[in-house]
Amino acid sequence: MEVFLFYTLAAILVVFAIFTVTARNPVRSALYLVSALLGMAGLFFLLKAEFVGAVQILVYVGGIMVLFLFVIMLVSVREVQGERRANRQWKTAVVLATVLSVELIFFVVGGADVFRTEAVKQGVITQIQTANTQNVGQMLYTNYLLPFEIASILLLVAMIGAVVLARKEL
């Protein structure tokens, strides 16, 4: 069951990620990205990270992607038929990205022995199994209190910056 779910969600994720990158119309691209992010949220649920999965759906799909769609509407450039969607260096870019991915997968698979699951899972506290949200919240407010506050300041700064940047007279 886990295997089946993993491969289904992985297929959704990869296919829609490819569509996101190749789609001609930005609106379609955004909608494909929504699907890809939902697949990713499913993977988070599969990894028993309910809180991160829920935050993913609420913040990414509900917040950030709506923002993207709004901006696409605001700057709607007319679709020009036959206009290039790739820039001039795209051949080099594809080659470099292929090299990068082959290299990364080579190292990940080569080091797979380090990542065997059974080795670690037994005998350790199972704080993830029970009440995931409660435990994440507790951790956020104890061990990670300072980063949490800094994150809130970061969000405030980003909000002010976005308002200033999008003003009429700049």
Partner: peptide, 16 residues
Amino acid sequence: TIVFSIGVVGVLTRRN
């Protein structure tokens, strides 16, 4: 890794 590489391709090749 695969998803990251797809993202890299998008960043490097698209014009929009």
